[in-house]
Design a protein around this nucleic acid. Structure first.
Length: 289
DNA sequence: ATGCAGGGACGAT
DNA sequence: ATCGTCCCTGCA
């Protein structure tokens, strides 16, 4: 039985498990996620996908899972690279997601120098403390905190959520969004270079985190974030970053050069290629998230 | 038990 | 342009 066209390159379970979003969990047969001020849910029924949201927002999945993207041309573009071409076949259904910019920014500021289970814990604690309680299907959830709610919190209170030194950076990020110096709508319209430069002005946002925010929430599909896993992929599969040991972190200069090279090589959808590489490296290492 | 790594970024040399 | 440091937790 053939999948309808919409589902040919779309499996939300793979997508929410690919390290780009943090606040998703499976309960029974359904997956539940926190998307800004809503709880979102999906499950399969007789082979078809069903989406729900609380409170209800019609077709929220179209935006969230980028279902309007022309995946034929996107995949054709990044499949010019033979390795990525194979990964597209290996992981059918993996898609980039479109995150809420504020949630995405706060999430990735929390991501510096830590691991995914820790990020999940930090964000979960923030949600419980500053988000709104929502009961869906008899289960309790907490929405992602608003910028205003976090803006009112002190650095000390944020630290108490297990953020460590990141509390100062969260203060800076929500402050910039609250006072308008970091203007999300402007950043969406701006080009990659300009939006990136604006993000880098915020304390706690460096090159890597900026690229994540640009790719996952600001429509910059050419952004190519390089974390330790992507650095390993570039070194082992592409022969880039020559001479760098696997255990070493990238220097600022190395990041700039490698990211520029990758953006040129993979093209205007480089970020999509990055997601396949990232997912593959993690799968290969047997990571359970 | 001490060390180290885990989706980095900052500040001082 | 490099290098130590930053909170925190799990694991060797």
């Amino acid at each position: 039985m053939r999948q309808p066209p919409l589902l040919a390159h779309f499996d939300p379970e793979t997508s929410v498990n690919s390290g780009q979003v943090f606040l998703w969990e499976k309960s029974g047969q359904a997956w539940y996620g926190i998307h800004a001020d809503r709880v979102v849910k999906f499950y399969r029924q007789d082979g078809a996908l069903v989406f729900e949201s609380f409170p209800e927002e019609r077709q929220i999945e179209r935006s969230m899972f980028r279902l309007d993207d022309d995946t034929d041309s996107i995949f054709a573009e990044i499949a010019k690279d033979p390795i990525v071409k194979k990964l597209i076949a290996s992981y059918p259904g993996l898609r980039l997601m479109r995150q809420d910019p504020a949630q995405c920014t706060i999430s990735f500021v929390c991501a510096s120098n830590t691991n995914i289970p820790m990020i999940r814990r930090m964000l979960g604690t923030l949600a419980k403390k500053y988000g709104q309680r929502i009961v869906a299907d008899g289960k309790e959830f907490h929405t992602f905190p608003s910028v205003q709610a976090l803006h009112k919190a002190s650095e000390g209170e944020l630290r108490a959520c297990g953020l460590g030194y990141r509390a100062k950076a969260i203060k800076a990020a929500v402050g910039a969004m609250a006072d308008g110096s970091l203007d999300i709508e402007y950043l969406k319209k701006a080009g990659y270079d300009e939006a990136r430069a604006e993000l880098l002005k915020v304390y706690g946002i460096g090159p890597k985190i900026a690229d994540c925010i640009l790719l996952f929430s600001l429509e910059k599909l050419d952004a190519f974030p390089i974390d330790v896993w992507i650095a390993r992929a570039l070194a082992s599969h592409y022969g880039w970053l020559a001479g760098k040991k696997m255990s070493e972190k990238l220097t600022g200069h190395q990041y700039i050069e490698a990211s520029k090279a990758a953006r040129t090589y993979f093209g205007k959808y480089a970020g999509y290629a990055q997601q396949f590489l990232y997912y593959h490296m993690r799968q290969d290492a047997g990571k359970k998230w």
